[in-house]
Amino acid sequence: MKAFIFDLNGTMVNDMPYHAKAWTNIINGELGGSFSDDEIKQNMYGKNAEVLVRMFGEGRFSAEEMDRISEGKEEQYRREFISELKLLPGLAEFLERAYQAGILMAIGSAAIPSNIDFVLDNLNIRHYFKAIVSAHDVTRSKPDPESFTKPAALLGVKPEDCIVFEDVPKGAEAAANAGMKAVILTTTHPVEDFINMDNILHFAADFNDDYIKALV
């Protein structure tokens, strides 16, 4: 393969429980919702404004209100997660081996830029990635393929020459829509949540998995 494209949350760092906790505090605590943990987990993908519309419907919040709510949620997430911030097991070694092998790498994430910076700069791994595509860089969220086709274009590689690393069904679907194969990290969803997706190469708990190691 010529390129690896990584989702961030749940794929490079196991932080989805912290996002879920922050969303629960905001949605049920501050905004008066009464949603179950499972309802929130199933809907907290894509841009934050899309999550709010998904949960509360169109027109409930103005754009300015959604921006304020979103920033409060992300500040809470970063404050809670900073002490636990670390790469998934085996990822540091995998990134270094791929880098030394000359494999191009990029990030294609629905995270906002400040959250991507939070991970890359605190863990000192920015130099591995030749392209970074955030929620602010796309017009449509996953499962639209833009989050993956755009970093591939920035790297100058064809979709069929990329492997996507993801952790959620919508991300795997976005990879399929981009014409890319995917490796799934099972940090967030069980294997059965990916039924009937024929672009998935492998499922792994982390990057110490023998299949993933053999990709470089």
Rank of each mutant, 00 (worst) to 15 (best):
I27G: 07
M1V: 08
V216P: 01
D206F: 05
N25F: 05
L120T: 13
P145L: 06
F207L: 08
L155D: 00
A174C: 08
K158W: 00
G57K: 06
P159M: 01
T188W: 00
A176L: 11
V138I: 08
D193Y: 07
A49W: 13
A172R: 14
I125L: 08
V157L: 05
N14V: 03
Y18V: 01
K181H: 09
I200D: 05
V168H: 07
Q100V: 11
Y18L: 04
I132C: 09
M55W: 14
V133L: 02
N48K: 04
L31K: 07
G32R: 00
F207P: 10
D198P: 08
I163W: 02
A172V: 12
M197K: 13
P89W: 01
P89G: 04
F81I: 02
I40L: 13
A49T: 14
A63H: 10
T149W: 00
G32A: 03
V13S: 03
S62V: 12
G102N: 05
T186Q: 06
S141D: 05
E96Y: 02
I212C: 00
L8T: 00
E160A: 12
G33V: 01
S34Y: 08
Y211S: 11
H19A: 09
M66Q: 14
I82S: 08
V157W: 06
A49E: 14
N208G: 09
E166Q: 05
L91T: 04
S34G: 14
A110Q: 02
H19Q: 05
L85Q: 01
S83T: 06
L87A: 04
G59D: 10
V157N: 00
N25I: 06
G72M: 13
R126S: 14
D161M: 07
D121W: 13
T11F: 08
Q76K: 12
I26M: 15
V13M: 03
M197Q: 13
A172H: 12
D198Y: 03
Q42N: 15
K181W: 05
N196A: 09
E74H: 13
E146T: 04
G29F: 08
L215K: 10
K47F: 00
I112Q: 09
T186M: 07
E166M: 03
E146M: 06
T149Q: 07
P89M: 03
D121I: 07
S36T: 15
D167A: 07
L91A: 00
L88Q: 02
M66E: 13
I163D: 09
S109E: 05
R140A: 12
L154D: 06
H202V: 11
V51C: 15
E80P: 00
E192K: 07
